[in-house]
């Protein structure tokens, strides 16, 4: 089931801007990386993507754990008859938020990629990285731990509050709350 952000616009570009602006603000809480968008990103008619940083890389985060991060969201700009949300809006199709160490060992990965069959991993899930598991752990890095839909804002808050990432802006909490509120107000499922 798709997720609709507010994100409505009189034109596809407006819907895209409303979708990506809060995400960029959220990202600015931990990094100066800027999202890169795929060709045709503000036009309907196919799956588009935004990623940060570029080309499969990771951004280094400040903090004692020396973590690295990447984010990718795939979406489609669609037309709707809903008078409150249209005529154009953004429907998220997939996300990946990856937290790794400096040598690219997995720490935690948040995934939703419904196209990868089979089984329960079609829903949102997380992987605990091997760096966090003991040899005798029941869970492995390949285990799909089911989650609800996870927002980029929640992952960034987790990084700051629990993983000791040093925020880049003093108003990070307000920024994430504001951005996340939009996510909760407008999602069509959880």
């Amino acid at each position: 089931m798709p997720l609709y952000f507010p994100l409505a616009g009189k034109a596809p570009r407006e819907a895209f801007d409303a979708f990506v602006s809060p995400l960029q603000r959220a990202l600015s809480c931990i990094s100066d990386a800027v999202f890169v968008r795929s060709y045709g990103s503000a036009t309907p008619g196919g799956i588009r993507s935004i990623i940060a940083p570029t080309a499969g890389r990771f951004v280094p985060l400040r903090g004692e754990n020396r973590l690295h991060f990447s984010a990718a969201l795939q979406y489609e700009i669609v037309k709707t008859d809903d008078p409150d949300r249209g005529p154009w809006k953004v429907s998220t199709k997939k996300y990946m938020y990856h937290v790794v160490t400096g040598d690219m060992t997995e720490v935690i990965l948040f995934h939703w990629h419904p196209e990868v069959p089979p089984g329960p991993q079609r829903g949102p899930h997380l992987h605990l990285g091997s760096s966090q598991l003991t040899r005798s752990a029941v869970v492995s890095h390949r285990t799909h731990v089911p989650t609800g839909r996870v927002s980029l804002e929640s992952v960034i808050e987790l990084l700051i509050t629990d993983f000791n990432v040093v925020p880049r802006r003093a108003d990070w909490k307000e920024t994430l709350d504001e951005s996340r509120q939009r996510f909760h107000d407008w999602r069509t499922w959880s």
Partner: peptide
Amino acid sequence: PDSLRVQQVAALLPF
């Protein structure tokens, strides 16, 4: 297909 490295690349498919 769900591994870190495969997903890092798969994220770029729309690009």
